[in-house]
């Protein structure tokens, strides 16, 4: 068993743990934004670690793996941002609605007033 195989296996295990935690977070979190946080952040790291582990186990695929990781690294945050922003614009269900914490709309108001 070479050192690459050990590192690759470890990466796959770490990635699987993060993917599991992401799934648990989607099930367990109270509102849309918390679920998005669990479902996108954890699964981004989990998917990247798992795929990198596969690349280390099969070194012939390493360039494909790097391209896939690059693709995940820039498509996943953008899509989760779009989802969260759409939910914010629709004034969706928020768990902490009573506490009046809404930093994004403050920033947006500032942006609009500067224009």
């Amino acid at each position: 068993m070479s050192i690459l195989e050990i590192i690759g296996g470890l990466l796959i295990v770490i990635g699987s743990i993060f993917l599991f935690l992401g799934a648990l977070g989607i099930y367990r979190m109270p509102d849309v934004f918390n679920r998005l946080q669990a479902g996108t952040k954890a699964s981004t790291l989990g998917a990247m670690a798992t795929i990198l582990g596969v690349g280390l186990l099969a070194p012939g695929w390493i360039f494909k793996v790097l391209i896939i990781i690059l693709f995940i690294a820039y498509s996943n945050p953008i899509s989760s941002h779009a989802l969260a922003r759409a939910m914010h614009k629709r004034k969706g269900y928020m768990y902490f609605k009573d506490e009046d914490i809404d930093a994004y709309s403050e920033i947006e108001e500032k942006d609009n007033s500067e224009k």
Binding site: S75, I78, H81, A82, R85, K89
Partner: peptide, 19 residues
């Protein structure tokens, strides 16, 4: 459309479209 897309989505789409 209900509201225009944000700047992040705009620049991201420009990068994603060719790929």
């Amino acid at each position: 459309v209900l509201f225009p897309a944000s700047r992040i989505v705009m620049s991201g789409a420009k990068l994603l479209f060719p790929s």
